[in-house]
């Protein structure tokens, strides 16, 4: 067993893990943070996506010891407590979620995209979300949501 220190959604944790334990297992099984989903555990679907020091990673392929001391954000911690992040609000208002299973990962992929490119075109959004699968929406309303959020967020920071 190995000691792992990490910060998730602003909270510090110290837990013991095995060498093979993935970040997804840490989040779901040890910390009971369930928005990252085990959609495939093969790195293909993106439902397990989280931000590690602001970088989008697939937590099912990430060894938990590789995030030693790092800051993890899941969709539960995207907004300040009691608030809803503009991306979350935009996904809600633009019907970007259907079954909701891909939604947490999708929103974090969008966050990573907007951090780098606050004014994306639809093509940019497609590229930014290309690692995250959705079987319900056909993506159109997801892309609508990200564009809507980017417009709002730019206005806010202006």
């Amino acid at each position: 067993m190995h000691l792992l220190k990490l910060t998730v959604n602003g909270q510090n944790y110290e837990i013991t893990v095995q060498l093979k334990t993935t970040l997804l297992e840490v989040l779901r099984d040890k910390l009971q943070i369930t928005s990252p989903k085990a959609g495939c555990n093969q790195g293909d679907c993106g439902t397990c996506s989280v931000l590690v020091d602001s970088i989008l990673v697939k937590s099912c392929l990430t060894n938990s010891l590789s995030v030693q001391g790092k800051k993890i954000i899941t969709v539960e911690g995207l907004a300040k407590p009691g608030e809803v992040h503009p991306l979350q609000q935009a996904f809600h208002e633009n019907y970007g979620a259907q079954c909701g299973f891909c939604t947490p990962g999708m929103i974090l992929a969008a966050k990573a995209l907007l951090d780098k490119n606050p004014n994306p075109t639809r093509e940019d959004v497609k590229v930014g979300l290309s690692g995250n699968l959705c079987r319900c929406t056909g993506y159109t309303k997801i892309i609508d949501s990200v564009i809507a959020a980017s417009e709002k967020m730019v206005t806010v920071t202006d």
């Binding site: 779901r28 928005s35 989903k37 809803v84 996904f91 809600h92 019907y95 979620a97 909701g100 947490p104």
Partner: peptide, 21 residues
């Protein structure tokens, strides 16, 4: 009208079968 479960979906509050621990 907005989805009944929309806010829960986007905030990660929605619990699917696998999320019941």
């Amino acid at each position: 009208v907005l989805r009944y479960d929309g806010l829960a979906h986007v905030t990660g509050e929605t619990h699917f079968a696998d999320d019941v621990i």
